[in-house]
Design a protein around this nucleic acid. Structure first.
Length: 570
RNA sequence: CGGGAUGUAGCGCAGCUUGGUAGCGCACCUCGCUUGGGACGAGGGGGUCGCAGGUUCAAAUCCUGUCAUCCCGACCA
């Protein structure tokens, strides 16, 4: 491709509305163009990157035994009503009516359709297992799209669905997909970590996410991992051994139950300071509203509530913390002095976090303004469950080593769905005994557009993108320093033809601009290798520059071709 | 959905307080000059100032409404 013809416009400045570095660079280097919030055109450079990622995905999925098909983007409500997700999915599901008034939706995912497709064709256990996938545009009407391709509303996803007659077979395929995913991301130049996760709206029992770990701000998820063993989990799913497993207020001299005046002492910090006690001896009460019903969470003072865990525990669709007015309404007390004591559990659901287990002589609100109780001990049996956020420094649940935290970008995930969709949708096969059984299913997603963005988050420098060569839009950028110099242009053109004929994807920057402009663009766009044809051509030499390392080699044109072959063909 | 901000040329912005010819830089077009790190000179094209009302002789500017976008919190590939 000649640069003068390439459909691209690089910008001198970063766009104002971009936050994430991948977003900034994709816009500035001319890869994407925003149409509206969270919706982008993929310009020719971007399309080449996506095509390359897709190719890797297809090769590995096919090698893993999956079959590609293509399912519809617009789907009837009927299917979603059957699976029960029409109500559950919420506003993220974009709904519309066709001209007859039938309700439709734009596909955010394809469990419903694939289940209906499969059940029509798979009728015997002999046909199982089967794994079907496609690569397709999805639409999720995100509350707040941001970070460009990292969280668009419209995005490209590879989604695969497997059908089995036994849990063992599902688990086998799950492992198979995990291996395929690791290979896919590796071939895209990305190291990923497989972490345990919450299964969210997709549902199911076991699930893992593939995370690209990013040391900086750009990741959207917190990942806890153990350096000693291979435990790793998304913060919405992570569990830990507490630093202080059992706490006793007697340690701070509170061994007798009494009510104390604590005027205007509202927060845990204030209370700890006021009583000269550590937060871990306080039983904190936090009121939530889950689907408009009150839920009171009792949790140790040094811990925070993990809202996704709470959401799952109370089996709600939506959750938010309650206002002070709601606290007054449901508990008759303002926030800051709440407790579970004297609460009518028929009206307010009370949940105890595991961290509150085994506390002795602790402090808690008196459910009366400006009063707390000290030296309290449980007087009843309570059920405890896990609704708290892990903190860095807490210990690995498997081996007890301290847990580390890092940011991560989720580029893929795998779920064991079981019969979550097949059962309600009546998708069954006939087993050996002639009985009808619902399919046991798995599903496996890769965010194609997000993978591209993640690669940029991971690989960039002050000059621009540094693509891994496997997914770069082109491999080599040939820059004749002076387009008016016939000698330079001749050599550049010859190199261009030679490399292209070898199947090496090459750009020739034939523009009349000065060298600086071409160098800047080359680095911004992120071509892995650049061949500069300049003054040194008088000595028969060109420059071969490695984008990643900045290393420059002086080579003859023939040697430069050899270097390209060696680096890019094998 | 709550909190904050912004809408003026493809991009980045000024002008608005105090109403009176719509401006600057980049990009684009023409000519000249230049060619190893985003040159320079001269000339040129492009904007119903988000939209709709209102006030006024006169609105980018003041008022009202509305829409959109972006940033901070809860969802997800």
């Amino acid at each position: 491709m000649k640069m003068s013809k390439l459909f691209v416009q690089t910008l001198r400045e970063f766009p104002n509305d971009a936050e994430a570095i991948s977003h900034k660079l994709l816009v500035r280097a001319g890869y994407i163009k925003k149409l509206t919030s969270g919706i982008y055109s993929y310009l020719p450079l971007m399309q080449r990157v996506l095509t390359k990622i897709n190719k890797i995905v297809r090769e590995e999925m096919n090698a893993a035994g999956a079959q590609e098909l293509l399912m519809p983007f617009v789907q009837p409500a009927e299917l979603w009503l059957k699976s029960g997700r029409w109500e559950v999915y919420g506003k993220e599901l974009a709904r519309l009516n066709d001209r007859h008034g039938n309700q439709m939706c734009l596909a955010p995912t394809h469990e419903e359709v694939v289940t209906s497709v499969a059940s029509g064709i798979l009728s015997s256990y002999k046909q199982l297992p089967v794994n079907l996938y496609h690569i397709q545009t999805k639409f999720r009407d995100e509350i707040r799209p941001r970070f460009g391709l990292l969280r668009g509303r419209e995005f490209i996803m590879k989604d695969a669905y497997s059908f089995h007659s036994s849990q063992e077979s599902l688990e086998e395929e799950y492992e198979n997909m995990a291996r395929a995913y690791t290979r896919i991301f590796k071939r895209c130049g990305l190291e990923t970590k497989m972490v345990q996760s919450d299964s969210g709206a997709i549902g199911g029992n076991v699930s893992h996410e593939f995370m690209v770990l990013t040391s900086t701000q750009s990741g959207e998820d917190d990942v806890f991992y153990c350096e000693n063993c291979d435990y790793a989990a998304n913060s919405n799913h992570a569990v830990s051994k507490l630093q202080k497993e059992f706490t006793n207020g007697a340690e701070f001299g509170y061994s007798e139950e009494k009510i104390l005046d604590t005027p205007n002492v509202k927060t845990i910090d204030e209370l700890a300071k006021f009583l000269k006690i550590e937060p871990y001896c306080i039983l904190k009460a936090v009121l939530y509203i889950a689907d408009s019903k009150p839920v009171l969470v009792m949790i140790r003072g040094d811990k925070e509530v993990e809202e996704t865990k709470l959401l799952n525990t109370v089996n709600a669709l939506e959750i938010r913390s309650a206002t002070n007015e709601e606290a007054l309404e449901y508990l008759g007390c303002e926030v800051g002095y709440l407790s579970y004591l004297n609460v009518d559990r028929n009206k307010v659901k009370v949940i105890f976090d595991n961290s509150a287990k085994g506390m002795k002589n602790f402090v808690l609100g008196a459910n009366e303004p400006h009063k707390h109780i000290v030296g309290y001990n449980y007087k009843e049996e309570n059920d405890f469950c896990d609704v708290s956020l892990v903190k860095e420094g807490e210990h690995c649940p498997c081996c007890g080593s301290p847990l580390k935290i890092t940011r991560g970008i989720e580029v893929g995930n795998i779920f064991q769905l079981g019969t979550k969709y097949s059962k309600p949708m009546g998708a069954t096969y006939t087993d050996e005994k002639g009985e009808d059984k619902p399919f046991i299913m798995g599903c496996y997603g890769i965010g194609i557009t997000r993978t591209a963005a993640a690669a940029i988050e991971k690989y960039h420098d002050d000059f621009g993108i540094v693509w891994p060569k496997e997914i770069a839009p082109y491999h080599v950028d040939i820059v004749p320093v002076n387009a008016d110099d016939n000698e330079q242009m001749d050599v550049a053109l010859k190199l261009y033809d030679t490399l292209n004929s070898l199947g090496i994807e090459t750009v020739l920057d034939d523009r009349a601009d000065r060298a600086g402009v071409k160098f800047k663009d080359s680095e911004l766009i992120g071509f892995p290798y650049r061949i500069t044809v300049g003054k040194t051509i008088k000595e028969g030499l060109v420059e071969f520059k490695h984008r990643k390392t900045g290393e420059v080699e002086k080579l003859t044109p023939d040697e430069a071709v050899e270097r390209c072959k060696q680096l890019l063909l094998n």
